[in-house]
Structures are given as C-alpha cells and as structure tokens.
Design a protein around this nucleic acid. Structure first.
Length: 781
DNA sequence: TTTTACTTCGTTTTT
DNA sequence: CGAAGTAAAA
C-alpha cells in the first residue's frame, strides 16, 4: 500500500506531513483538513520515516476525538494502528498513574472523583470548616481548587504563595482539606490525573525516561485548549526527543473559563525557537462568503496569530441577518424558515443546526419546533455516569465490593430509606476517623459512636447486608453481581416509590440496563475484569456509553450550544440570539477585560465556521431573561461583519423597523427593504440603562482592534432618536388573524396608542389576549 | 423524617 | 420565570 502524499494533500498539508522531526506547530484553521493532515502524517511516520507505531502517541481532549482519530489512522495504516497510543490526556494519565500509584502514595485501587464526587467532598469541607456559603459558594471553591491544580499549584504551594494574605485564608484551608479528603478516599479528581502525572515525572526521572523512550513522537490535538498542567506534561514527555507536533487554532480557543491557556499556542515558538510552523488556511468546508465573514470578525482580535481562511469555492449566498421582535418571534422565524426550506427543497431536517450561546435559549426554540411538529434533537450535556440512578447503583456496587470509599458509602447509606439521618452519619464519620475505620465498618459500631437505638440497628443491618453481598461476590460475573445488589438492596422497589410517573421509572430502569450491558461488554473485553478498574475506565472514558436511543442519522434539526458545535459542520447553520448582553454576554462586556470579549469573538468565529452552505443570524429585540424583560440591540459581532456579505432584508410585513445597534447606528436597508425610517437603539429600560450606557462608551473608546479601526457600521453612523412610527395594521376589528404562536383568532379591539396599536384578539385556542400590533405581527387570514 | 414553603440564583463543558 | 436547594412545619 503506497500513498501518493503529494497528490492527495495540498502543499501545506504535505509540509506538515513531512515535518516529522523536532517541534512542529500546525496552525489548522477551521475546516482546513486538520484530521487529514494528522492521519497522513501518522501514516508517513510509520511508512516513510520508519518510526515504530508504538513510539507514537496522540493526545486529544475528548474521547470522541480520540475514537475518530484512531479510526481514521486505522483506515490508513491498517494493523499498525493498534500499536499507536491514541487517547485523551486524562485517560493517558490514568493509565500511567495506575502503574505507579504507590510512588505517589495512592493505592492502585484509586478511584476517579467526578464532579458529583467533587461536590460532595466540597460540601463536607465547607461544613467542617464552618465556611459561610453565602460568601464562598461551593461552585466557586471547586473552581478555585481546580484552577490552582490546572496551574500545577499544590495546596502547599498555594499556602506559601498566599501566606499572610487574609483574603486567601479560606481558599488555603479549603484546598488543603479538600485534597486531604480525596486522599483519604484514595480518589483523584480529573485535575489530579494531570497534576499527579507531572509530579510523578518530576520526582521520578527514571519513570519519566521510560515514557520518553516509549513516546518518541508526540502529537497533540486541539493544542489551543491545553492548560498549564497539560503543557508541562507534554513538555516533560517531549524534552528528550523533542519530536513534538502540536495541532491547533488559536482562533478557536474557547475554553479559557476552564483553564485553557491560549498562550500555550501563541508562545509555542518562544519555547521551541526551532519549531517548524505550518499554517493550514485553505478551507474545504464553507462558501467564500461565510469564510470572509468569519475572517472579518476574528480580525478584530488582538491576541492572535495573523491568518485568514480562503477557499476555491464560490461565494455562495449572502449571510442572512434578521432582527425579530421577541425571542418567540425569533424561534418562530427559524422554525418557519427551516420548515419552508425542507418543504420546498431537496434538503432535509438533518441538514440544519441551530447554535445558541446559552442553554436557556433552547426553550423558545423547542416550543417553536414542537408546535410545528418538526423533529428536533437538543444536544444536552446530560451524562450517563452522572445520573442519579447510575451514581446510586455504582455506589452500591463499590460499597458492597470494597467499602473503602466513604463517599460512595455515604451516598447510599440511607437508600432505600432506613431512617439514617445526617446526624447519625456525622457521628459515624467522626467515629470512623477517630478509630481509623471506614464509614462502612463504623456502621457496625453505631452504638459506640453514639447513634440512637433505631438508627444503630438500621446501620447494623446496612453493614451486614453489604458484607453478605460481598461474600457472594467471589467468582461471580459483574452483571450477576449487579443483579444481586439490586435484589438484596431492593433498589428497584425504592426507585418505583421514588419516581412520579411510570415513564420515569422505565427510563431509570433502562439506565440500569445500560449499565448492565456496559458491565458485560467490559468483562468480555478485559483480561482481568475488576469493578474498580471498570469504574475508573468509565470515569475517564465514560462517554463511550451512548445514551441516545435515537439513531445518529435521524432526520432531525439539531439544537446545541456553540461550544458543543465545535468540530462539527452543517450545511445550514442558524446562530440565534445575536444580541449585546447575550452574545457577547454581559459578563464579558462588563468584566473590563478585553480578553473576555475576544474569547466571545472566538466563539463567534467557531460558530460561523460550522456552516457549509448558508449562514443565518438572528436576534430578538425583547427577550425574557431570568424573569425580567430585557431589551437588546444587535450584537457588535454583526457590525464586525463585512456589510457587503450581509443580507439584511426584512420581509415587507416586518419591515417597519431597522436593525438597531447599541451605539445608535442602524443598518442600511437591504435590497428588498422598504423606506428607511430610523429606529433608535434599544429602549432604555429602568434597570438596564447603566449597561446600555456603558456599552455605548466602550464602543466609542475602544479602537476595536490593533489593525483596523472600524467606525460604526461600515463607516455609516446615524444617531436617531425617533419614536417608532406606528404603522396601521392590515386588519380591523372583526377580522380573522393568525398569530405565530397562538394560532387563529378574531380581532376584538384595535386602539391606537402612543407608539403602536394595541390589539385585542380572541384566539380560538387560548382566549382573549391584548398585544401590541408591532410585536404581535398578526396576519390577516 | 418527610413534606411544604420559601429563598436564591442564574454563561459556556470535558474529563 | 423556574430550577434547585434550604429552612420551617407536620
């Protein structure tokens, strides 16, 4: 099997493939054939450069990426692919740590603490340290600890660093206590996996050397998402042979909030001055118009490596932009638009994706799709291993099997309800700690621990039950063990009582079935199956369990967050909620850090570049957020787009207003737009005035980017203070009209108000409603 | 101990 | 506005 690399790759990709030795930075723009370059490079390493497959490691962030890469490499290199180590950072570290756990004072039985475990540990910590959770929220504390770990700061270092800093005292104590608690339970959280591996490498040079010899050729995917700990891990591993190839795109760095350090990619050449830099800028995904728009937007960022995507493809359709009156109107527009296109064209629902900034936005969209009977799929972050049922059941399994992890024991100690309250657990934990026994063992000494009679008996029962199960465990298949545990603990009966509807019960039981399947699968595919190993594997590779019962290729519109869309592509993409305050969000606008806006802009860039054929941007003038009505103007990102690429046409019946921006400028009417009346920016509502003013200031002060100075909208800037002109509705009292949400109804009343007509309609389905004609957009039928 | 009323608090997410 | 979590009452 010989591959004609030169022919099958473009010049830059070919460069990347041939750069086998030394440090290499591949700046792979969106849709530039990154995966192609990586897989060909790997094949080249083995086939042409004579590198042994087992000397190659590829690190990714997600299991999905690892799976896909493995598969693609497999297609190219055949059986050699099995010897190439392709996996996530966390999975890699877990495996390394498993072999050397003792060196760091962990037993090889160590467990992974996921976020729910982190939460319960932190709850404990907060309680024991008497921390005021009003001032220090659990979530913030977890984030602080995590941020420290991402920066390779241990509790000791954290204390030294902030010694005497009163404001940091709480964090110092919390971090230390949190870490002690994890240690006590022989657990590592996800950050520990990286941190501890770095520690291992630093403190045990022979271990490091072993892995350096093993991994002579290192590839890192999505390098822009690495944090400091991961950077150091890579640096250590690569420091012997220096064959480090990192692939990424600084413009797609959107995970700063979880520790990603964009400097890792921006400063790569500073750390590796001899690095070969290869830019993949030819895009194979989108139309020229989409790319030009993306390029323009991202060019407003200062902190980036200069580059621009280009394509041989046609310009394609313009980017459509629509400002609707409400969030519901926006959703209705999108849903109608998609339905119309599917109805009249060769496209199907699966070609469409709606990307939003925040999950809350899905509500309106879902409504709109449901009402129209359009199939959609909401991509949500509900994760199998985090489900309450699975957490409960696996806690039972582990407690019955070993009982060494108090976190698990604590979780199920009162399931089903045995009358064991928080107070009893508290006493037991204290007793256990004092006498060096696990919580489970302490259950057998409840009376000594000072627990009241009834509770003590219940605890004894619980203890005996677990021990009994454990005795039967020997030689049993894991799935059988699961059945036994369910049987003995009466968990299913408990579930049935716990649950509100039969459907809910069914769903939960299905989860357990899924767990059973996963156990069987694991047992069949593993030499020495072991429950703790199973749990650990699933801790780091957990999302292999597909919880979606619906097949991947179902003909459905996809709704997801922009973050979730990273790495995906769709023929037709809708970016909804393109409003100041939502995207970019107020947090970014008000933080005062340009970096925050830049991160949002990168997100915008990522979102735009998901589209292959057509891109539609929408926003709403009014939206309910957190129970309050918020008036918003169009996102600054719209203004940063090339005007000529935009189709701002508003359908005639919707055209009485122009798109409004926060600085008071308005857009030129589109090709089909009617007469240009002005529209002042956003209505200044009582509470939001301050924000609006601030936004305005910023627009004036900030010379948007280093390179270009954008003024207003393509140089046009008009200040307009005019009132909305109330246009006379096309209907009158007695007419039948249709509303996008409420359906048909009869006009009962029509009053001309100061700004708009107030119309009263008796809807067939939902009764009498009053609304403003401008908002309601009723159509005469 | 469980149910009920009340308060609080609201980006983005993988491992 | 609503979910989720907490304090008070049954």
């Amino acid at each position: 099997m010989s591959i004609d690399y030169e022919k099958e790759l473009n010049d830059r990709q070919y460069d990347a493939v041939r750069a086998t030795e030394g440090p290499v930075l591949i700046l792979a723009g969106a849709g530039s054939g990154k995966t192609r370059a990586i897989t060909y490079r790997t094949a080249y390493l083995i086939g042409e450069a004579g590198i042994k497959p087992w000397n190659i490691i590829a690190l990714t962030f997600t299991n999905k990426a690892a799976r896909e890469m493995k598969e693609r490499i497999g297609q190219m290199t055949g059986s050699d692919a099995r010897d190439i180590w392709v996996s996530t950072f966390h999975s890699t570290c877990m495996r390394i740590l498993f072999a050397h756990a003792d060196k760091l004072g962990y037993s090889p039985n160590f467990e992974i603490a996921d976020q729910s475990d982190q939460k319960s540990v932190m709850k404990d910590v907060v309680k024991h340290l008497n921390i005021d959770t009003k001032m220090y929220k659990e979530k913030t504390l977890i984030n602080t600890v995590s941020a420290a770990k991402d920066e390779l700061i241990t509790p000791q270092m954290y204390e030294e660093r902030h010694y005497g800093d009163y404001s940091k005292r709480v964090y110092i104590d919390v971090y230390r206590a949190y870490q002690e608690q994890l240690r006590k339970n022989n657990s590592m959280d996800f950050d520990d996996l990286i941190l501890n591996t770095v520690e291992l490498f630093r403190n045990f040079p022979d271990v490091l050397e072993h892995y350096q010899e093993r991994f002579r050729y290192i590839m890192v995917d999505e390098y822009q998402d690495t944090n400091t700990a991961q950077f150091e891990l890579i640096r250590l591993l690569a420091s012997r042979y220096r064959n480090l190839c990192v692939v990424g795109d600084d413009d797609q760095s959107i995970y700063r909030f979880r520790g990603a350090n964009i400097r890792n990619i921006l400063d790569f050449e500073k750390i590796y001055p001899d690095a070969a830099i290869i830019k993949l800028e030819q895009n194979y995904r989108s139309t020229a118009n989409i790319l030009e728009t993306a390029n323009q937007v991202i060019s407003h960022n200062r902190g980036r490596k200069p580059k621009a995507l280009w394509t041989e493809a046609e310009g394609g359709r313009k980017i459509r932009f629509r400002q609707l009156d409400s969030a519901a109107g926006e959703a209705a527009f999108v849903a109608d638009d998609i339905r119309d296109r599917v109805k009249s064209g060769t496209v199907s629902y699966r070609d469409f994706a709606i990307l939003m900034r925040t999950n809350i936005q899905s509500k309106e969209l879902e409504d709109a799709f449901r009402v129209r009977g359009i199939d959609y799929d909401l991509v949500k972050g509900l994760r199998f291993w985090d489900t309450k049922v699975i957490k409960d059941v696996t806690s039972f399994l582990l407690t019955a099997a070993s009982g060494e992890n108090d976190l698990r024991t604590q979780r199920i100690i009162n399931i089903p309800r045995r009358g064991i309250g928080a107070a009893s657990v508290e006493k037991l934990t204290a007793y256990g700690a004092a006498n060096g026994m696990t919580l489970l063992d302490a259950c057998a000494h409840a009376k000594e621990a000072g627990v009241s009679g009834k509770a003590a008996a219940a605890l004894q029962d619980f203890h005996d039950e677990m021990k009994e199960i454990r005795e039967k465990l020997n030689g049993m298949h894991l799935a059988e063990f699961l059945d036994l545990v369910l049987q003995e603990t009466g968990y299913l009966i408990y579930l049935d009582e716990e649950v509100e509807t039969p459907e809910e019960y069914k769903e939960k039981v299905e989860y357990i079935e899924k767990l059973r399947e996963t156990l069987v699968e694991y047992e069949q595919g593993t030499e020495n199956p072991d429950l703790i190993d199973f749990m650990r594997m699933n801790g780091v590779e957990g999302n292999n369990v597909d919880q979606d019962s619906s097949p991947e290729n179902a003909d459905k519109v996809l709704i997801m967050t922009m973050h979730n869309a990273k790495g995906l592509e769709f023929p037709y993409v809708y970016l909804v909620g393109m409003e100041e305050g939502l995207f970019p969000g107020y947090a970014a606008i008000n933080s005062g850090e340009e970096e925050d806006i830049e991160e949002e802009r990168r997100l915008c860039y990522v979102a735009i570049t998901r589209a292959k054929q057509e891109l539609t941007l929408t926003c709403a003038r009014v939206r309910m957020v957190n129970g309050e009505t918020r008036y918003a103007s169009a996102s600054r990102f719209i203004k940063e787009m090339p005007f000529g690429m935009l189709d701002m046409n508003v359908a005639p019946e919707k055209t009485e207003r122009r798109v409004s921006f926060s600085d008071g400028s308005y857009e030129k009417p589109g090709a089909y737009g009617g007469a240009a009346y002005g529209m002042h920016s956003s209505y200044d509502r009582r509470g939001s005035e301050r924000e609006t003013v601030k936004t305005g200031n910023r627009t004036h002060k900030a010379p948007a980017s280093g390179s270009t100075s954008k003024k207003g909208f393509n140089g046009q800037k008009l200040k307009l203070g005019k009132e909305i002109i109330a246009t006379e509705p096309e209907y009158k009292v007695g007419d039948r009209v249709r509303h996008f949400k409420f359906g048909e109804g009869t006009v009962k009343d029509l009053i001309k108000g100061g700004r708009d007509y107030e119309v009263t309609v008796d809807f067939d389905s939902s009764g009498i409603r009053k609304m403003f004609a401008g908002f309601a957009k009723l159509k005469k039928v």
